[in-house]
Design a protein around this nucleic acid. Sequence first.
DNA 1: ACTAAATGCTTTGATATCAAAGCATAATTC
DNA 2: GAATTATGCTTTGATATCAAAGCATTTAGT
Lengths: 140, 140
Amino acid sequence: MQIDNTIFLMGRISEKSNRYLTQEMGKIGLAGLAPSHGDVIANLFKYQEISMSQLSSAIFRDPSTVTALVNKLKQRGFVQTRKDEEDSRVTIVSLTDSGKALEPHFQAISRDLYDIEYQGVTDEERKTLQCLLAKINSNF
Amino acid sequence: MQIDNTIFLMGRISEKSNRYLTQEMGKIGLAGLAPSHGDVIANLFKYQEISMSQLSSAIFRDPSTVTALVNKLKQRGFVQTRKDEEDSRVTIVSLTDSGKALEPHFQAISRDLYDIEYQGVTDEERKTLQCLLAKINSNF
DNA sequence: ACTAAATGCTTTGATATCAAAGCATAATTC
DNA sequence: GAATTATGCTTTGATATCAAAGCATTTAGT
């Protein structure tokens, strides 16, 4: 029968987090965008410039999905793209000024999310959780 | 910045599980169906008969999504529906014989999934994980 | 009893997502 | 160096999903 419901719980937590992120993104001018759009932006904070395929690997989404995500972000004015000079197949994505301006808001949202997550959870437990999830993730 | 990546890991594990479930469902005659369809069926193993709205609560999906899920399962011949006699608004869903025949396969898939998840994880750790996830889930 | 509110479900429209196929361009092989 | 294979990306088509609106029917309020 059912051994436990950990997989189920991870799914639920994941969905609730996404709901929360979507809601908070709406408050900082990103209404109508999904968590994955946020993932794109977050990776641009980290790497400044990144190709479509690197983005695809970084956010674990199909290349065709990344095309759609970046198109939307471009249309909204948060990112821009240019062709790579060395390899004309490659498209390189970067933040516009209005994209860069989001960074502090992203940090705040991220902090808030983890505050919610870890209410009543000790640092010790947090580390244990982190370890266990990393191990389970590598089991698949 | 980023405090940890537990939320991210839960999302990844959840997606990988879903990928696995979809694949295994394909092997038992459920190709083209999603994990949520499996959730509907699993709840019917548990309750035999259940209304659309109860199903909606049980699988945490919008009522309109449940309508679509059940329609597809009906079309494939795994479930059937009837009107409740007491309240004609209510639709009650139940398994057909070919739906019931899936139960042992579901048990096997569920077992296999947990075997994968818990490779190299002790019973103690499993309990800890279960506890922490339950707490975090209730934090949202 | 009649109206208003609530409940159960479905339809419609929008969207993120993936898979498959297509189209370039680059790299490799012969 | 021409042909094949690989790589990077996009287009197209299908689907699960939700939100909003709609339609019944049941319940509550007066």
